[in-house]
């Protein structure tokens, strides 16, 4: 599904990703951990097409296509979804309006008709229930005045409605209280399927207790320096990043 090969990328002349390799197959859940400033969010931005990044080397193929050559909205329409580390507020635009506009843009791209208003409402309410959110959130402006945890939950609501193929979660667990973490994890688990893949960026092993990854990678200084199974996360928790960073050097 996703094949990242020797990716080098930077911003404003600063090199951040320095030869990153990663392969994700359909249905797999990959967790990426790593110290602050290692380049995790940068990776998520480069994959989703945020402007301002310079790709100096390497390639990314997604479903057989050159991902880096696609417009950000086309990547989204083809199923790349990023749950942002810091979701933005959009005053005046209601959550439900955004969801509908986004869903219709994606459907149009795939040659489908606009979603029927009643069907859409039923779908959205179903997902709101899944994430145990109050329906009132649908009619509030996107993220405006939402608490940190509510914003994160709202990102997963969008994923649930838009049903992406590759779901990148950038620290979705940060800022969630214990109960919310469980609810969001349940939401993510319900999205798991044979042809949907996840790339989860996190600092905390606890998330991985709820969402069992197939692989855990350590990203340090712009590269994947170690990969393993879920047990790697436990080991990291015990020994800290200096352990892998020392190994890599």
């Amino acid at each position: 599904m996703l094949n990242i090969n020797n990716l080098h990328a930077g911003v404003e002349g600063k090199q951040i990703l320095k030869g990153l390799n990663l392969q994700i197959n359909p249905g797999e859940v990959h967790a990426i951990m790593g110290p602050n400033g290692a380049g995790k969010s940068t990776l998520s931005h480069v994959l989703s097409g945020k402007s301002g990044y310079e790709i100096t080397q390497g390639s990314v193929s997604y479903q057989g296509r050159d991902l880096l050559d696609m417009e950000p909205e086309d990547r989204a329409r083809e199923g790349v979804f990023l749950a942002f580390q810091y979701p933005v507020e959009i005053p005046g635009v209601s959550n439900i309006y955004l969801l509908k506009a986004a869903l219709n843009a994606i459907r149009k791209h795939h040659g489908l008709n606009e979603v029927d208003a009643m069907d859409f409402l039923a779908l959205v309410k179903d997902k709101v229930k899944l994430l145990q959110m109050d329906e009132k959130f649908l009619y509030r402006a996107v993220n405006e005045g939402f608490s940190g945890g509510e914003k994160k939950r709202n990102e997963i609501l969008q994923a649930a409605v838009l049903e992406p193929k590759l779901c990148i979660l950038d620290e979705t667990d940060s800022g969630l209280d214990i109960d919310a973490l469980k609810i969001v994890a349940d939401g993510v688990n319900s999205l798991r399927s044979q042809d949907r893949s996840f790339l989860m960026i996190t600092h905390y092993q606890r998330l991985l207790d709820y969402i069992k990854p197939d692989f855990v990678h350590v990203l340090a200084d712009g590269k994947i320096v170690k990969s393993g199974g879920p047990e790697l996360a436990l080991e990291l928790e015990a020994k800290g990043y200096s352990w892998v960073e020392g190994q890599a050097a």
């Binding site: 989703s48 909205e73 942002f84 635009v93 506009a101 986004a102 843009a105 838009l162």
Partner: peptide, 21 residues
């Protein structure tokens, strides 16, 4: 970028934000 990441063109995003305003 947020709107584009959800599948909207930049034009539609600006129009949506302006209309919301």
């Amino acid at each position: 970028f947020f709107c584009q990441q959800r599948g909207l063109s930049a034009e539609d995003a600006v129009s949506m934000i302006v209309n919301g305003f």
